[in-house]
Design a protein around this nucleic acid. Structure first.
Lengths: 333, 333
DNA sequence: CTGTTAGCGCTTTCAG
DNA sequence: CTGAAAGCGCTAACAG
């Protein structure tokens, strides 16, 4: 289905050798400026478009970088992809995405990447277990995004403990002393680090952590709703709630509404992630950002460095989230 | 940076000719089953991974298909990409995405695709004007998603007029006779078709279209909020509102709340698109789905057909949206 | 500064 | 059924 111009066509037309055309077009040294200009002009006119396959076959190297993401193009994948892409555009890197539906599918993606002889890979899938051990040896540089694994591969992380402290400290600074926390599951390292962060912030402020106001969930709205009903419906209730993620805060909102509690007058709520839903909620949800975009950007940068042989200084880079105050948190009345 | 096994390596080890290896691995006819099995086993053991570049250079064709999307990985892009991907996985098609920030950037993406000698392209960017005329001649098959253009290229569309009728008819069936409509801008064909649909549904039901309850906006929440304040704050107000998209319904919610109107008891609200925000809103927003996922799937299928020489029957395929009833619409009291 | 030549890894005729 | 050889489009030695 191909019928395109090659450097042979343009060499023939100009009465020169193909290699001369190659040099002229690639801007390699050793070609008279006059000839180069003429060749470039001719190439333009003939509608020449270089064949990447041929070039890369010859050069035995490719600038294409692969990105492995989650199954769906959801908020998580999109944010990381956006950051990766922003760096790619700057450095003129071509990207190819693979959305893995399972660990096996992830392997399939890697195989394809290998066949394409890509230059490197950014791993941002949650399909790979948080506790997965060594990853199969790859023939190209790889960088993980927000994945905890014990292998020696490079990774870009965020500090969940610090982020959770931001959330708790924000509530403390508003005068809250009775703070509840609906967290993710216990088998998530993210959850556990956020728990440590909350406890640390409370301890530093001399405020007790009340076990009755703590719950672990499956990260989902429904579970949060049920936990919130219990916590906020008790005889002694907290004046502020921390949610392990933003979607769960929706469940907390529902429970508060059902109990006749106003947000933030009766109970302040703060989320985590800065998911797009924060702006759709009423009141808009205060949160701590999960800097996925920046992490994606950093990851591609790290892969790119590795590809260019520059050994990166740290095999683990931390990107910090930040507190984002909206309308769901207010002073303790 | 490459140091991988080639068919030469495995041919040498097996004491056969490279072409035999090639045949054995590709499953081409004319190789003894015994030899083929031995070769495949050896390839496996040696960790052979075919070089796509070389194969495609030789075969002068590639199965990779390009997808041009919007700048950001937002809801719109993500839904289309998801549908495209689902078909790609089934047919083992490799995809490469390009997110265009401008019309010029879109051209750049096409140039890259051309260099890669991709097999076809799915166009889903809104960067290309709705009224853009002929598109530059491409050397590979292209299919547009939800883009109105006068050129003869294939496209996958949805019927905005019908979708708007679904919304209006839903309200009519609930007994509403006073229906307001906050639409998108007048220069959008989508907006104008939705307007036609609403008018048609009302006319068929013998219900007047009240100009005072109609507004055009820039598709944004803020503009919808202001329009809704005017429409719902008037002396005679509608009992139901149609919103040109889901985000604008958030603005309508805000206005209603400010005016002390309950949803859906005092005013029903229905959106358009089935954006993720529908489930985050309270009450959850009834809407008409924009079948982006299905359109993306259809688009890739169409490109794939074209690549395989099968002339597709229709150069314009319609995917219908459907009414999705949630909690924001209720009977006219 | 330009031409000649070889070869990247693979597939595909054409012979044997 | 298998081997030999050519060539996809490009680049990079090496000569001239």
């Amino acid at each position: 289905v191909d019928n395109l111009i090659t450097i042979y066509d343009i060499a023939q037309k100009m009465g020169v050798n193909p290699s001369t055309v190659s040099r002229a077009l690639s801007g390699a040294p050793g070609t008279s400026a006059a000839l180069r200009a003429k060749i470039q002009k001719a190439a333009q006119e003939m509608g020449y478009s270089p064949n990447l396959m041929a070039r890369q076959l010859r050069m035995k190297t490719t600038s294409i970088i692969g990105v492995i993401l989650d199954e769906e193009w959801n908020w998580y994948s999109g944010a990381i992809a956006g950051g990766v892409q922003s760096y790619a555009r700057e450095k003129d890197i071509k990207l190819i995405f693979w959305n893995a539906t399972s660990a096996a599918d992830q392997e399939a993606g890697l195989a394809v990447f290998e066949e394409m002889r890509i230059g490197g890979v950014v791993f941002a899938s949650t399909q790979i277990g948080e506790h997965s051990g060594e990853y199969p040896k790859l023939t190209f540089p790889a960088v993980f995004v927000n994945r905890i694994n014990s292998s020696k591969t490079s990774r870009i992380m965020t500090d969940d403990l610090e982020g959770a402290m931001f959330a708790a400290q924000h509530l403390l600074s508003l005068g809250h002393r009775n703070i509840g926390f609906i967290n993710g599951p216990e088998n998530s390292i993210h959850s556990m680090n956020r728990l440590k962060g909350v406890k640390k912030a409370l301890q530093e402020a001399g405020v007790p952590f009340v076990e009755d106001w703590y719950a672990t969930t499956d990260w989902r709205e429904k579970a949060a709703y049920e936990s919130a009903l219990r916590i906020l419906g008790g005889s002694a209730r907290p004046t502020a709630m921390i949610s392990g993620n933003d979607e769960m805060a929706i469940g907390i909102y529902d429970a508060a509404r059902e109990l006749g509690l106003r947000i933030p007058e009766d109970v302040s709520v703060i989320g985590y992630n800065n998911h797009t839903c924060c702006d759709y909620m009423r009141p808009k949800l205060s949160t701590v950002s999960l800097p996925l975009w920046e992490m994606g950007r950093n990851a591609l940068e790290a892969v790119f460095m590795k590809m260019n042989g520059k050994e990166i200084q740290k095999d683990k880079r931390i990107v910090n989230g930040e507190l984002i105050v909206r309308d769901s948190t207010g002073p303790c009345l």
